[in-house]
Computed example of a mutant assay.
Amino acid sequence: MSWKTGTRLIAGLITAGAMTSGFNDDASAASEHESPASIASNLTYLPNYGDRAYFPTWFFGETRLCVYNPGLGESVAKIQSQSPAAPPEHLYPQPGATECISRWWWGVPVSVYNDGHSPLYTWTY
């Protein structure tokens, strides 16, 4: 699947609400920052093990970071704040599922690494 095809697929799933069923935290799936356009604007495809992307975060308020596994195998996303004191966090989205976390990163950028063998789409809002 090409990157453009994958982006259109994910944007369509977001618009249809299909990707909200896999949220793993207790925060509401809806947010005042969430819209298909805002998600699609920073949607990043990480097709291979070791691929990474960097994302800005909100200074005031939580930033929600989501990872979608379009593959057939289990996947691992390593989330690392650029703050030296912050330990890494991991998300384990199952095939066809989305996992999200919401954190106060205080404007410090975060990086997302594909630490698994299944491709990932990731975005923040």
Rank of each mutant, 00 (worst) to 15 (best):
Ser2Cys: 05
Trp3Leu: 10
Lys4Gln: 06
Thr5Tyr: 12
Arg8Met: 04
Leu9Pro: 01
Ile10Pro: 06
Ala11Asp: 14
Ala11Tyr: 02
Gly12Thr: 11
Leu13Ala: 13
Leu13Pro: 05
Leu13Asp: 12
Thr15Trp: 07
Thr15His: 13
Thr15Met: 05
Ser21Ala: 02
Ser21Arg: 10
Gly22Ile: 12
Phe23Gln: 05
Asn24Thr: 15
Asn24Ile: 01
Asp25Pro: 01
Ala27Trp: 01
Ser28Ala: 09
Ala29Asn: 13
Ala30Ser: 07
Glu32Asp: 10
His33Tyr: 01
Pro36Lys: 01
Pro36Phe: 03
Pro36Ala: 09
Ala37Ile: 03
Ser38Gln: 01
Asn42His: 14
Leu43Ser: 15
Thr44Cys: 11
Leu46Ser: 00
Leu46Arg: 04
Pro47Glu: 12
Pro47Lys: 12
Tyr49Arg: 14
Gly50Thr: 09
Asp51Ser: 08
Phe55Tyr: 10
Thr57Asn: 09
Thr57Gly: 06
Trp58Asp: 12
Phe59Arg: 15
Phe60Lys: 09
Thr63Phe: 13
Cys66Trp: 00
Tyr68Met: 05
Tyr68Ile: 11
Leu72Asn: 15
Gly73Thr: 15
Gly73Asn: 07
Val76Gly: 05
Val76Pro: 01
Val76Asp: 15
Ala77Thr: 07
Lys78Asp: 15
Lys78Asn: 05
Ile79His: 09
Ser81Thr: 03
Gln82Met: 03
Ala85Gln: 14
Ala85His: 07
Ala85Pro: 04
Ala86His: 00
Pro87Asp: 03
Pro88Met: 02
Pro88Ser: 09
His90Cys: 15
Tyr92Gln: 10
Pro93Asp: 06
Gln94Cys: 09
Pro95Trp: 10
Pro95Asn: 03
Gly96Met: 13
Ala97Met: 04
Thr98Tyr: 08
Ser102Ile: 01
Ser102Phe: 04
Arg103His: 02
Trp104Leu: 08
Trp105Lys: 06
Trp106Val: 07
Gly107Ser: 12
Gly107Trp: 14
Val108Thr: 08
Pro109Ala: 07
Pro109Gln: 08
Val110Ser: 00
Val110Cys: 00
Ser111Asp: 04
Val112Trp: 15
Tyr113Val: 03
Asp115Trp: 07
His117Trp: 02
Ser118Leu: 05
Thr122Ile: 03
Trp123Asp: 13
Trp123Arg: 13
Thr124Gln: 11
Thr124Lys: 08
Thr124Leu: 03
Tyr125Cys: 14
